[in-house]
Write a protein that binds this DNA or RNA. Sequence first.
RNA 1: GGCGUCGUAGCCAAGCGGUAAGGCAGAGGUCUGCAAAACCUUUAUUCACCGGUUCGAUUCCGGUCGACGCCUCCA
Length: 472
Amino acid sequence: MKLYNSFSRTKEDFESSINFSARSDKTIKIYVCGPTVYDYIHIGNTRPMCVFDVLRRYLKYLGYNVKYVQNFTDVDDKIINRAHKENTGFFDISEKFIKEYKIDAAGLNVMPADVHPKASETIQEMIDMINILIKNKHAYATESGDVYFDTLSFENYGKLSNQTLSDLQTGARIDPNEAKKNATDFALWKASKPDEPFWDSPWGLGRPGWHIECSAMSRKFLGDTIDIHCGGQDLMFPHHENEIAQSEGCTGVKFSYFWLHNGYININDTKMSKSLNNFFTAREISEKYGYEAIRYFMISGHYKSPLNYTERAMQQSISSIQRLYNFKENLNFAINNKISESGVNLLENINKYKQDFLTAMNDDLNTSDALAVIFSMIKEANIKLSDFDVKFSVKNLEKIANCFNEFTSILGILYKNENNIKNQEEIDILLKDRDLARINKKWEKSDEIRDKLYKLGVAVKDTPNGTNVFKF
RNA sequence: GGCGUCGUAGCCAAGCGGUAAGGCAGAGGUCUGCAAAACCUUUAUUCACCGGUUCGAUUCCGGUCGACGCCUCCA
């Protein structure tokens, strides 16, 4: 498998770059920068959730043991501001939105991380790291009780974002209130202000800076060196740059072999922002189009490319998913209705599709191509499947179904649970009545029953081999 | 100003040196009691534009135009 590494700005062979064959610890360690939990997650937040979930699923499919950590940033200005605004506690806000996050994540079929650390529960580890950084002369404390990272002390500073310190300094802004040595220095620890959460530290009461949170949480649960660090492209600078400086300045070893950055979700080709009034939460979009349409939309293009959110794009996703579901239903119908072990094979070359799918995924998770492979398989199968006179080998049909399910579960699509239909008896009676009406050519009545069934969440398709009934 | 991404059919989107995948939408048709699903036909002599390299470029190089992102604790 090859992955594009933002650090080297090239596609690299995964196993070679992490030195997989030579190391004793075979667990793949992944850290994903998680949301700041001050509000419902927005549509942009769902991108990294979905695409790195695909990465995780695919690595597991390939047989790797994966440890996946995604944090919750629950110590942050935005949370504090919201708490003040609503006149409630900081942790009431963060706990509420962690719960809401989990609802959205489940809706999007994003597997829970192996560990979901919270910044507020990793304070001691942050203090430990800051202490080491000060000892290593990479950080300094000011009289006011703040601690800053000394960017000039870290020679590789700027390497990830491909910028030199002098470039950065011209663009950097200095807050006159800050006692920084250099414009590019950033806070590791901030002295507490009134009405803010605080913790005790060697530098007095205060709270951690944003960047150190991720360094500490990553280190605590994954160790000094991890394999893949993921996040949105906007985090590359300064957040990820600072993480590298902190972590490597502290441990002296490589922080992460790979850096993966997902592209943005734009609204009308423009970044979404509250001021432009083009801000959408995942929740409200899911209510309109369903979570699965969001999930599909997220993987319809390459994870690094920007995606433009439009109503039309969502409708297209819904239609595409429907085609996949239809195939699944039709395949199941064939399996259940063409019981003949000795029939002909529906597809001879299942392995070819499998191979093409893997090739696509191995190429830096080309989910777009992977979907195209699935649709090609569907096309070939549908052509033969529409001939109701042919008896197909059930074994072959099942093999195709397994392969199809394998593909869709790697991509994390087609997970919609069948409706738990409570009134099964009523439905059975309606189906029988409809059959009877059709035998007697009472079309009006049979159509009426079909509508009724549809409203109950049951679709019927008449075929020469009987009626294909499925719940939606 | 520095760093970076992108411009492929009505829409979405792969391909990135050998002559344009896939999905959605549209039109016509087949099948069906009607539907639904599915299938068939149809939709880019062309990949923003201009040069260059090459036997050959959407794909590489240079330039132009256009859109966008980061450098403001925003995924």
